[in-house]
Design a protein around this nucleic acid. Structure first.
Lengths: 214, 214
DNA sequence: AAGCGTTTCAAACACTTGTTTTAAACAAGT
DNA sequence: ACTTGTTTAAAACAAGTGTTTGAAACGCTT
């Protein structure tokens, strides 16, 4: 009764939340266990109690972020036509890595891991990223009409992903170079629409150049 | 005479070179001055002798990398047609951030700075990045025939840059998901050609949808 | 040779890091 | 009452951090 509004979040969960924020902002080596425990409002020794050490806390936190970012969405859930599927895929990805409603450290942690991988990257790629990539390739293949080779699929997939990750990795630059894009309240939708249209045209061109070589 | 083949590289330059490698691999906070001085084969105190402290060494190193990465190339140097210009621009960018002949830490340092900026980012954007961005916008405008608004230019520019940076930021993932792309000896040319074709189609689609809205 | 500014060196400084230890307090279950 | 697992608290540990110091060695001009 008295503790009705007091949120009884377990200490371990508070630790992961605080660790995510600080690892996301300062990286693994830049983060200190003292600052993490301070923000989590737990004792200094709690890290070594709930986790073996700082590294296991990091891996656990990273795993937590990856699991919520890479929710599996089946192609049939995305839409009817390949165009709708691609838009849904891109929009979903942007939401997951940029939506301010989600904890910002999810995307930050992912971006850090991609740029300077830890020893978890291998399992991370196979468990989370590759299935997502396969879905994307299927959508692209659908939009192209089933004509593209594996190499072409990889190149196009990289083009799509690269366009999305730009707004996460280079957000600071983007804010300075073209603030007008990020200011609109529904800017994520605008960006998703642009990337979709841009990429569909690229795919079509790829198909056309394949059909009549030269 | 006796010291003919012995390279008398000054200690300060050796420091910057070593600092670049280690900052690029471990980030600012993960790098230690002791490891830097060890690799540079200078005394520990040399950092505080040639630079005020660790931070000034980092800023100096970052500045060095940016200056060599962002060589100014005028549009007229790039080629005759907008298509050739875009290819030259993309190819040049990829070379600068990925060419293994160059010191690898240039690109790594840039990628790190974009993802988690230091207090140098503002001057860095204005001095190095914005002029480059303006060049790219000019090329895109040329390829589009001078029809695009500032916002569209920014979106398309981000798409082009994002595609290029993908291979720097997500190299580790790319190596695992599609190794066949990175194995070819002239893979940078292949990627540049793909991104150019892909982007030209995207630009054309943008122009078309602008002309006949609906 | 002597003097000079520049550069190198080993040692130490004060401080922070991750981790461990010991103790005690708390709630819940038997 | 007595465990049991959880949480807090304060202190200490060894190792590593960036930085400073003072003296020695160097290269050069006078």
């Amino acid at each position: 009764m008295a503790t009705l509004s007091a949120a009884p979040i377990p200490a371990r969960d508070r630790l992961i939340e605080a660790a995510g924020e600080i690892f996301g902002d300062h990286g693994y080596e830049g983060a200190t266990v003292r600052e993490i425990t301070r923000r989590a409002k737990v004792n200094l020794a709690a890290i070594n109690y709930y986790f073996r050490d700082k590294e296991e806390l990091y891996l656990e936190t990273l795993n937590h972020a990856m699991r919520t970012i890479f929710l599996r969405t089946q192609p049939e859930d995305l839409g009817a036509t390949p165009e709708e599927q691609l838009l849904a895929y891109i929009s979903g990805l942007l939401q997951r890595i940029l939506n301010p409603a989600r904890p910002g450290w999810h995307g930050k942690l992912l971006a850090r891991e991609l740029t300077s991988p830890s020893r978890l990257l291998n399992v991370l790629v196979e468990t989370f990223i590759r299935p997502h990539r396969d879905t994307l390739h299927m959508i692209i293949q659908g939009a192209a009409g089933g004509k593209l080779s594996e190499t072409h699929l990889s190149l196009i997939g990289a083009s799509v992903i690269g366009q999305c990750l730009y707004y996460r990795n280079c957000r600071a630059v983007s804010e300075r170079l073209s603030p007008e894009i990020l200011e609109a309240p529904d800017y994520l939708d605008h960006i998703a629409a642009h990337i979709t249209q841009f990429s569909l045209a690229g795919i079509a061109a790829q198909v056309a150049s394949k059909k009549c070589p030269k």
